[in-house]
């Protein structure tokens, strides 16, 4: 099989005869959905969305926030706090060891990164889960950082955006993790009371305790295409009901159909769409300046009103 990539590929990377599915390290990635081999720099420019089939690959919390926030000044919130091991939890491995392994692999202290920055000049706080850190599971640090993000929003009257990708509550912190569901939900209650918008973006996968708390509590719930979103995992459901699950079950499109989401948004349009939504919802606290209005594709209002608070 000779496809465009093989023709383009410099001979030194071309695999001779061997395993065709073998993707050389470094410059090339394979789309897990359509198997297309992709040129990594191009993939990165496209925010890790397959240019061929539109599959949204998982990305790290920092890649996410870097792509989402304006370049320039950003402040990481509650970056200094790190996980503890109050239960001295040990399964087949020690929790302590799992933590240091995850920290080494990701360069993160825990599974949530929160930053204050701006989106097309609108100041806001954005949070993103790191799935590679123990499945993006929510323990005390994730809860504390999320709440710190909310508190920043309350102090400075900012909107909040959170990109979830998580298997749920972190088992190794046991009931402390469960309580993070209550804690984050309560904090979002304060946002609601203060009239500050929270946009929840669910990305693949958003399950269990995270889905059943902060992720489903958006004033606006968005999701990336084909993300797995739900409370119980598909395998658990299959074992319980002893039926084969319907095609597309618990995917974004299924949730949209059943009324759980406002929109499915392509990652490459995320900035535009969220900016537009927040410009509308957060209008009492922020309005685009004149230059900004021109830059926005779909200016929601007469430019004459813009910039006047």
């Amino acid at each position: 099989m000779t496809n465009w990539f093989q023709r383009l590929m410099p001979s030194r990377i071309r695999t001779e005869g061997g395993n065709k599915h073998n993707v050389p390290e470094g410059l090339w990635d394979k789309c897990p959905a359509c198997q297309q081999v992709l040129y990594r720099p191009e993939l990165e420019r496209g925010l890790h969305v397959c240019p061929k089939c539109g599959h949204h690959m998982r990305i790290s919390a920092r890649t996410r926030l870097n792509a989402f926030l304006d370049e320039g000044e950003r402040e990481e919130i509650a970056a200094d706090i790190a996980p503890a091991d109050p239960l001295k939890f040990r399964d087949s491995k020690k929790y302590k060891d799992r933590l240091s392994q995850a920290q080494k692999a990701t360069g993160e202290k825990d599974a949530l990164v929160v930053m204050q920055g701006s989106l097309k000049q609108m100041p806001l706080v954005a949070a993103a889960f790191e799935f590679r850190f123990m499945g993006g599971s929510m323990g005390a640090v994730v809860g504390a950082r999320f709440v710190a993000g909310v508190e920043r929003c309350l102090e400075q009257q900012l909107p909040l955006v959170c990109f979830s990708t998580s298997g749920g509550a972190r088992m190794q912190e046991s009931l402390f993790s469960l309580m993070q569901m209550a804690k984050t939900s309560a904090a979002l209650g304060r946002m609601r009371k203060a009239g500050l918008p929270f946009i929840s973006v669910m990305t693949d996968p958003t399950m269990g305790g995270v889905s059943a708390s902060l992720a489903m509590l958006g004033d606006i719930n968005l999701a990336e295409p084909k993300a797995l979103i739900g409370f119980a995992g598909p395998r658990v459901i299959e074992q319980t009901v002893r039926e084969t699950l319907p095609e597309g079950f618990q995917r974004s499109e299924f949730l949209l159909e059943h009324g759980a989401l406002d929109q499915i948004v392509d990652r490459r349009e995320m900035r535009d769409r969220i900016h537009n939504l927040l410009s509308l919802l957060h209008h009492r606290h922020w309005q685009p300046g004149p230059a900004q209005t021109e830059a926005t594709m779909e200016a929601p209002r007469e430019s004459g009103e813009a910039g006047q608070d």
Binding site: M216, L217, G230, F231, A232, I237, T240
Partner: peptide
């Protein structure tokens, strides 16, 4: 309950809403 209908009707949202 981990069931098909429960997921369709928003098990996660129902729980989250109560917490809040």
């Amino acid at each position: 309950y981990p069931g098909i209908g429960a997921e369709e009707r928003g098990q996660s949202e129902a729980i989250a809403k109560n917490l809040q």
